[in-house]
Design a protein around this nucleic acid. Structure first.
Lengths: 225, 225
DNA sequence: GCCTAAGGTTAACCTAAAGTTAAGTTTTCT
DNA sequence: AGAAAACTTAACTTTAGGTTAACCTTAGGC
């Protein structure tokens, strides 16, 4: 079997954390916890869990805010986040989905339902193991050092170009649609013209070789060796 | 932009269907409806929607049963299904997840919440798409990479041809009618001549081998190894 | 075995999408 | 503040690929 999925639970009540931990560990998940939003963010960065359960109501930094900040972190972009809310808080669900939540669990927690939901959510999400450095076809990319080397020569790329390269190279061969690209580099809300992407692609092609960046007309772009 | 996502709503109350249709169409979705489970199954087979909203309580064939039967159909295995339930029916949610549901929407329907949920579900399901690669009779199809390999040789197919191949190969051996094909690749509203499909089929036969694409005269086409 | 309708073939045409360039704008750095 | 670098936009060109129309072939009912 694959590695145990890791779940981070964030709630300000220790009782709830215990309850979640007990039930989730019984199901074979690897559980970690945090008592508030800020700590949750820290733990999330360190542990890179597969799923995060966030209480909406927390002192200091609430679930919404935590969720938004988590979504800012590139390594956690694809993590599944579900909120924990009191029943009948529909209005908060709307804001929640907009903050980047994937689902909601209502209190009081029904154990069987909790497990079913978690399973359904994890079933849908793909495993995400991202390496810090990579080398494909003479091109080396070091995401942490913000450095690109082609045939042994360092190339300093501007931010947007670098982000685009990182995105495309995160799954070599995979096609990213313009929508994909806009969402992950510019964010859902920012609107930039379509030609902007082309221009950045052009720059990359100029600097790193035409042949590595393929256009799939009507679909998007992909990076290949 | 990508093709409009297609949503099938199944409920025995016309009022609810109208409400759903109105709200979803306003958001730019392609909506179709059915008044009971059995009809829902029929429409689902014909239209191959991206998401299905099923009322749990329906005469004749209830939501659970419909859901189970939908999951039996290969072409619909990865469709997102959400149930429509009365509030406080948690017990039915457990059974629902086990029947293959992805989420629940509670009545009375809150419009903003409905839309948020639908968006979140479609967003989540889009990239996963369950199986990304498949291999039938020497032909490998990788949806992510938008890449087809025949006997070890990469073949780059144009968008429409690729979509057609993906559709036909999603249920090898099954016959897709021209109507099926038009509905799922071009969408309900777009109208293209009949010969257009033939031309794309021809291209596929040229590139991937005549023998794999069978014509059933008067009915449609099927893909076989 | 003929006739008809469904399907096959081809090449010309058309269009939406991507490429290109240069001119603004914004940001960053000294 | 001023200059340089990065980013975005706009206007224009190019092109892949989608569609069509006109004609040809074939299956299968009679």
């Amino acid at each position: 079997m694959a590695k145990k999925p890791k779940i981070l639970c964030v709630d300000d009540e220790q009782d709830i954390l215990d309850l979640l931990t007990f039930n989730l560990e019984k199901e074979g998940y690897d559980v970690c916890t945090a008592l508030n939003g800020r700590k949750g963010l820290e733990v999330a960065k360190r542990e890179l869990p597969d799923l995060i359960i966030l209480d909406v109501m927390m002192p200091e930094m609430d679930g919404m805010e935590t969720c938004r900040e988590i979504r800012e972190i590139p390594a956690l972009q694809s993590v599944v986040i579900t909120f924990l809310t009191a029943r009948n808080e529909d209005y908060s669900q709307i804001a929640g989905f907009e903050a980047g939540a994937d689902d909601f669990i209502t209190k009081p927690i029904r154990q069987r339902l909790l497990i079913s939901k978690i399973k359904a959510l994890l079933r849908r999400s793909a495993p995400s193991d991202v390496k810090k450095e990579m080398s494909i076809g003479g091109i080396e990319i070091d995401r942490e050092k913000y450095l690109v080397t082609k045939d042994g020569v360092h190339i300093q790329l501007p931010k947007k170009e670098f982000e685009l390269l990182v995105l495309l190279s995160s799954a070599p061969g995979r096609v990213f649609t313009r929508e994909n690209i806009l969402n992950s580099i510019w964010g859902n809300d920012v609107i930039v013209g379509d030609r902007t992407i082309d221009v950045h692609i052009r720059k990359l092609r100029e600097k790193l070789g035409d042949e590595n960046f393929k256009t799939i007309k009507g679909v998007g772009y992909k990076f290949e060796a």
